[in-house]
Design a protein around this nucleic acid. Structure first.
Lengths: 244, 244
DNA sequence: ATAATACATTTGTATATACATACTATTGAA
DNA sequence: TTCAATAGTATGTATATACAAATGTATTAT
């Protein structure tokens, strides 16, 4: 693996270092729990100061990818499953790319549909007005692990011609000036029915983490209604909360 | 407001500063969006270096409490006033009573057990040291819907003789001076095995929402390791999050 | 053998310093 | 008046340095 920092680049060194580390810790030896080179050594390898290097490592520790122990060293957190931090507000692709996980889109199609009653009432629109429905089957290269159904409020102004492979909320922000701000989620468990089992390439009756997500913009106006079906064996939802 | 850092204290300066800032930014003027004193000034006020101060601010920015803008300043995130964060830290009985649901304890027993490896390593203790295990089967009058297994760090000082029918964290606080501050949770779905199905009075293979909860005190020391198995048809986990 | 001690290793804390960059406000010229 | 250049202010990036604290290991004394 090449560990090369470009001191002439416009990109800050600690960002470059962070990216390098994210890639480095993907490798099997580190996932197996081997300690990373110590900070002093690593800073020499990367030709940056220890202080700068620690900025990068701190970020990764915050993100839950690394753990450090005084007098011992730094290693990759062991966990077989992906996890999603609710703390910072992120879209699916941001969540994944933050972990250096490549995303694969298995299905992606857009259609105009009449909303179900509960969706129409969430958006506060009539049931006879067609809205945009976005279906996505996504996951890792080796297989899908989540099936999404999203519905968008007409006010968002999506035409259906947009590039839905780009991060959704970035696209909404740049192209339509919509800033998603608040998300309320309901998480529950259910069993895979025939449809979901087929999509997620698993068995009927397999455990599914079901996430309903209501997204609002800065004015608390509803923007998106999102249903996510996650294969439970490859996804863990994590929450961190603090008292007072 | 007193802004006083104790340089002789055992507590690291950046932790002290972080706590001070957390309190400072509670005050109405900052919640209204007024800029904090700039870093150089603030570091003088607190008598710590700017570098150290930035460590504290970084943490708060990461936690979504502050935003910084180059050339402008640092301020409290607007949504803070809605205090979604302070509300989401609750114990089971608080959660339920907040929803007006009466709680019934179906089972409740305490024992001293040798910790499994992962629990010992979470607590940072040896596997041959017995710890307190608390098992609870709880739910509504008409039937149980959650099975809990809790393990407590020896330092908490539980004897096993306490009144476990009272809200747990209140009891810990009053009787043992332990203040639970941070909780990290992992939520996933699984199927009921024989044991869980019997406890929750449901069928084997029924969908179960599984919640692992790690509780820490104010010093980030681990206090409790908690496993919760929720009958998916009677429990939904809700999360509200906001963008920075 | 066992316990106590010393030592090396590695992360944690803290400071001082310098310059870069983004934004704001002011000044000055067309 | 308007626009562009400039100065000022605040955060952002980066380094060098020093010592503290926790851990694991090797050594020594009992």
């Amino acid at each position: 693996m090449k560990l090369k920092i470009d001191h002439k680049s416009q990109i800050p060194l600690h960002i470059q270092a962070e990216e390098l580390l994210r890639r480095l810790i993907e490798s099997p030896e580190y996932i197996d729990g081997k300690l990373l080179p110590n900070e002093v050594e690593l800073s020499k390898i990367l030709s940056i100061s220890r202080t700068t290097l620690r900025q990068s490592i701190n970020k990764l520790v915050y993100d839950g990818l690394l753990t450090r122990k005084k007098g011992v060293g730094t290693k990759v957190v062991e966990s077989k499953s992906l996890s999603s931090k609710s703390k910072n507000w992120m879209s699916f692709s941001q969540e994944m790319s933050a972990r250096g996980i490549p995303i694969k889109n298995f299905e992606l199609h857009v259609s105009w549909v009449l909303p179900e009653k509960r969706i129409a009432s969430f958006f506060g629109i009539k049931e006879d007005k067609k809205i945009l429905k976005l279906v996505r089957l996504r996951g890792r290269p080796e297989g899908p692990f989540v099936y999404f159904e999203s519905y968008f409020h007409p006010i968002v102004g999506l035409t259906g011609e947009e590039d839905y492979k780009a991060p959704l909320y970035e696209m909404l922000e740049k192209a339509h000036g919509i800033i998603a701000m608040v998300s309320k989620e309901e998480i529950s468990a259910q069993l895979a029915d025939e449809f979901i089992a087929e999509k997620l390439e698993t068995k009927i009756g397999a455990p599914i983490l079901f996430r309903k997500r209501f997204v609002y913009d800065i004015n608390e106006s509803p923007i998106e209604y999102n249903l996510g079906y996650y294969k439970a064996d490859s996804f863990v939802y994590t929450v961190e909360s603090r008292r007072e």
